[in-house]
Design a protein around this nucleic acid. Structure first.
Lengths: 151, 151
DNA sequence: CGCTGATCTTGACTCGTTCCAGAAAAGTGC
DNA sequence: GCACTTTTCTGGAACGAGTCAAGATCAGCG
């Protein structure tokens, strides 16, 4: 939970101008990991009053390409963002309700970053998604028989 | 490359009615691994003449939930489908051109299907994507400086 | 052959996201 | 503080991927 000043430093460190929308968005992403764009817009507006959705999209793009946030797009749901970057952790995603949890890399420090054969590709990231049913959902619909609906 | 009859058997084996669109779609997925929905529609139409996009979407959904094809959705690109199912292999995806290659699981037979801590989630699949630059693209734009555009 | 429910067609529609352009506002370096 | 540049705002409009709904058609069964 970085303070407003921490966030300011983060922005400056990434050569980004410090603006109120940026501080608010980055703060929102820190406070609500895995939030989708819509929730972020809502949180930011609670904080600042009216902010155009356009601005939020712009800011999220800027932060993403500066590497301050990471964008994740699990199948069939809108983009989500998280501020935990740099460490390479993975995600548990519930097929039913879409809940997302962080998990540390199963294999080790420099984890799964190496496919068995790289075919000449220059790999820079390994993204792992564990598809699952979260405890609540597996209680509700015990056997994910047939086809799990994860739209 | 299964023949039309093979495909028919596959469909029947999965308790699916054998219709011309289904045969064509399943054939197309076999012939064009990692094709997106649009390309599949195009291929199917070359084969059968007019087919509604709706039908193709329906068929792909049916095939996916029957387990005859697998749906993959790398962040920021449309759904793609492949007919190689059952073995759990992973994908190399080029950030620049979107090319996809199969790679076998790096870790072993029952591979990455276990996060370090599962938080009570019932994991049924681990999806691994290696983000990379393919040989052609890394020749073209040597240093992927700044933010790779992979929209 | 004829029924029946599964499948396909048609066309409109939602959703999340991006693009546009000009004007206003705000951050930064001097 | 000022000028310069970037960012944001307004309010569109446009986009692609995917979905919905109603009716027509077809596969598979007896």
């Amino acid at each position: 939970m970085p303070t407003a000043t921490d966030i300011e430093h983060l922005l400056r460190g990434a050569d980004l101008r410090v603006t109120r929308p940026r501080v608010a968005v980055l703060g929102a992403v820190h406070d609500h990991p895995h939030a989708d764009t819509d929730s972020i817009i809502r949180v930011v507006r609670e904080d600042l009053g009216e902010v155009s959705h356009q601005a939020v999209y712009d800011v999220l793009r800027a932060l993403t390409s500066a590497g301050l946030v990471r964008r994740i797009q699990p199948s069939g749901s809108a983009s989500r963002y998280e501020a935990r970057v740099g460490d390479n952790h993975h995600h548990l995603v519930c097929r039913s309700c879409g809940a997302i949890e962080d998990v540390d890399c199963a294999v080790g420090a420099t984890p799964c970053l190496e496919p068995s054969e790289d075919l000449g590709f220059a790999v820079d990231e390994a993204e792992v998604i564990y598809w699952a049913l979260c405890p609540e959902c597996s209680a509700r619909e015990p056997a994910p028989s047939g086809s799990p609906r994860h739209q």
